[in-house]
């Protein structure tokens, strides 16, 4: 390791920051029991910029009876700020799998966001307020087995009746990869949707 640092330094002049603490906006904490990743600062900046610092936190990222679709409520005049907000939430999903589904739902309406979509986005931010420092934990005491989980719903998207795939991968007990994505075709049965989810999960593997 020391050798490669010398090589890099003699070729490019590097700044040696020693232990990894802050990378791409992600904070890294090391301890005896493991490594913890979070985007606390990024999350707090997001809450501040959305002007909800004074509001009450919510316990869930989304109302579970809510089915977002391209509805008839008033179109937003400031489309750019909605897009920027969803973009920031997307980046936040790198350490927050809990908002992955909500963000996937919001990102479907980037072209024509309405008032109800903005309200749902604000709900996610209120949820983030509850635990801005939540993140991923990679324990030291863990096996090196790769485990994958996949799931799908069936045609819950009101606009297109397409299904949504979700998957998770673990090394031992460390979560390393996940995704929530709408399938590209309409499935005529729930098992078909599950199979499709399984196929895209295997692709990731």
């Amino acid at each position: 390791m020391t050798h490669i640092k010398h090589v890099l330094h003699s070729n490019f002049r590097i700044k040696d920051l020693v232990i990894l603490k802050y990378f791409l906006g992600i904070e890294v904490a090391h301890s005896e029991i493991g490594i913890y990743l979070c985007q606390c600062k990024y999350c707090l900046d997001l809450i501040r910029d959305s002007g909800l610092s004074g509001g009450k936190p919510c316990s869930t990222p989304m109302d579970n009876s809510l089915r977002l679709h391209q509805d008839d409520s008033e179109l937003l005049t400031d489309v750019l700020s909605y897009r920027r907000l969803v973009g920031r939430l997307l980046y936040l999903t790198t350490t927050r799998p809990d908002i992955s589904f909500a963000t996937q739902q919001l990102s479907q309406f980037m072209s024509k966001p309405t008032r109800s979509h903005l309200a749902a986005a604000m709900r996610v931010i209120k949820y983030l307020k509850g635990h801005p420092g939540q993140g991923l934990f990679f324990p030291r005491d863990s096996q090196i087995h790769l485990t994958g989980f996949s799931d799908a719903d069936w045609g819950t998207c009101i606009d297109s009746r397409r299904s949504i795939t979700g998957y998770y991968f673990f090394i031992g007990s460390s979560l390393i990869s996940w995704k929530t994505k709408k399938q590209i075709t309409v499935s005529r049965s729930s098992s078909k949707a599950e199979y499709r989810a399984f196929a895209s999960t295997t692709c990731e593997l």
Partner: peptide, 13 residues
């Protein structure tokens, strides 16, 4: 984390 490797960060000027 599992193998207790040291992790370092470098920045190229």
């Amino acid at each position: 984390s599992i193998h207790r490797w040291t992790i370092q960060q470098l920045d190229v000027n």
